[in-house]
Amino acid sequence: MKTLNQAQPIIVRRIVKKGKPHGGAWKVAFADFAVAMMAFFLVLWLSQSATTEEKQAIAGYFEDPIGFTEGGSPSVIDLGGAVSIKVVDDPDSIPISQPEIKLEESQAQDIVDQVEQRKLRSLMNVILEQIERSPTLREYRDQLKLDITDEGLRIQIVDKQGRPMFDTGSAELKEYSREIINELAPTISRVDNKLVVSGHTDARPFPGFAGYSNWELSSDRANAARRALVEGGLPEDHISRVVGLASSSLYDSSEPFNPINRRITILVLNRRAALIMEDAEQVNPGEDQIVPAPVRVPPPVAKPDSVDSAAARSMDDIMQKLDERGVTREEPEQVPADAKPAPAKPAADNLVW
């Protein structure tokens, strides 16, 4: 039996944790959060201190990053290390200390082409929005094809099975086709670019009368589309050319008889394509070209008053031609009015030898 003075045993319990420690992962997460907060407050500070032009530059970058980088400085905000180009309407507002910027011709041409490309792309977006808003265009949006080519903005109005723009063999626009072109005309006229209107047919031969083929039919249809554009409000001087291409440029070359090949194309030319077309039309005669001789219209011949006057004029013409050829002629001897006639010579039989 234990006594009261006997020491009590001390029991120490040790808890052993077998799991791995957390480590420093939380430090990385906290650092990312701090960096994000710093970037957020930096954006707020820049938005507060930025000018209106710089805010427009930022907005332009986020709307079209590729076009913005190709069209100017890659820096969203000009920090003084790159050249910034600002277009002003009033030349008097340009600062005197503005440094002169010199660009090579190729660089200037690239800038102009990029601006032109952006303008045509903006026009295409406006037309696409118009198609969605307009009940007339929205109903036929599957027949409207828009794309950007090397020559400009191409708008194609194609036929559909059971819904053609023209009757077979006719160049008269159907009513809904006329409404489509009339609604597109005001939007296209927002830009001052030249237009080319072309008509296309499928590969099926024209079944009409002789001497009238798909070439004439496509030309007449293109001209009908031109009249509809002008009727819709497009200035007539915006149209540069109206052509008929028949089936030489098929939309679906794998199926030449496909109704989609029958279409009207409205091409909004860019600046480069318009200049090329103007240069092609202004052909100067050169050494290798045959210049036709001018057509000379003979003067009208008056009816002679008498036979004698006609004979006299004919004789004068003959004498003039002889003079031109260098033929000499003897003038008749002028006899004075009071001279006596010479005695007649005797005949040879009466002579005395």
Rank of each mutant, 00 (worst) to 15 (best):
K2R: 15
Q8I: 06
P9K: 14
I11M: 07
I11G: 02
K27I: 15
A29N: 09
A29G: 12
F30C: 04
A34G: 04
V35K: 10
M38W: 05
A39S: 05
L44Q: 12
G60P: 00
V83N: 08
S84P: 00
D89F: 07
I94P: 03
P95W: 08
I96E: 15
P99Y: 02
I101Q: 07
S106E: 13
D113T: 07
Q114S: 10
L120R: 00
D142F: 05
L146W: 04
D147Q: 10
V158T: 14
R163E: 08
Y176C: 03
R178F: 04
I181H: 05
I188K: 00
R190K: 15
R190Y: 01
V197I: 15
T201V: 02
T201H: 01
P205H: 03
S213A: 12
W215T: 12
R221V: 01
R221C: 03
N223R: 13
A225E: 04
G232M: 04
S247E: 14
S249I: 11
Y251C: 00
S253G: 07
E255V: 13
R262V: 15
R262C: 09
L269C: 00
L275W: 02
Q289I: 14
I290F: 09
V295L: 11
V297E: 13
D305V: 14
D305M: 06
V307S: 10
D317N: 11
Q320A: 14
G326K: 08
T328W: 04
A339Q: 13
P343R: 11
A344I: 09
